[in-house]
């Protein structure tokens, strides 16, 4: 099963883990860490996943107070690694 992660659990960072799901099952998102940014995080994940055309993955975001630019970067890095992973 394909899996990739990017980022760290250091303060102001986040760790993004992508795990393969069954074909056609769509995108699922779990967030741990901050309560007040659920909407913003959900929107950013949808935005970045959409622009990379990625689907049928579970995205797990462990947030340590990452700003949007950091979340976007970690998402992109995780997606990049996911797509080059031969598992």
């Amino acid at each position: 099963m394909k899996k990739a992660l990017a980022g760290t659990l250091e303060s102001s960072d986040c760790c993004v883990t992508l795990t393969e799901k069954n074909l056609g099952s769509g995108l699922s998102l779990t967030v741990s860490g901050t309560e007040r940014f659920m909407s913003a995080i959900t929107e950013t994940v949808g935005d970045v996943a959409g622009s990379f055309g990625i689907s049928d993955v579970d995205i797990f975001v462990q947030d340590r107070g990452a700003l949007d630019v950091v979340l976007r970067s970690r998402l992109e890095a995780a997606i990049l690694r996911y797509e080059t992973d031969e598992a």
Binding site: E35, R36, F37, M38, S39, A40
Partner: peptide, 9 residues
Amino acid sequence: ALSGRMDEI
């Protein structure tokens, strides 16, 4: 600008 949109309490 840094924090972005915060959900209401």
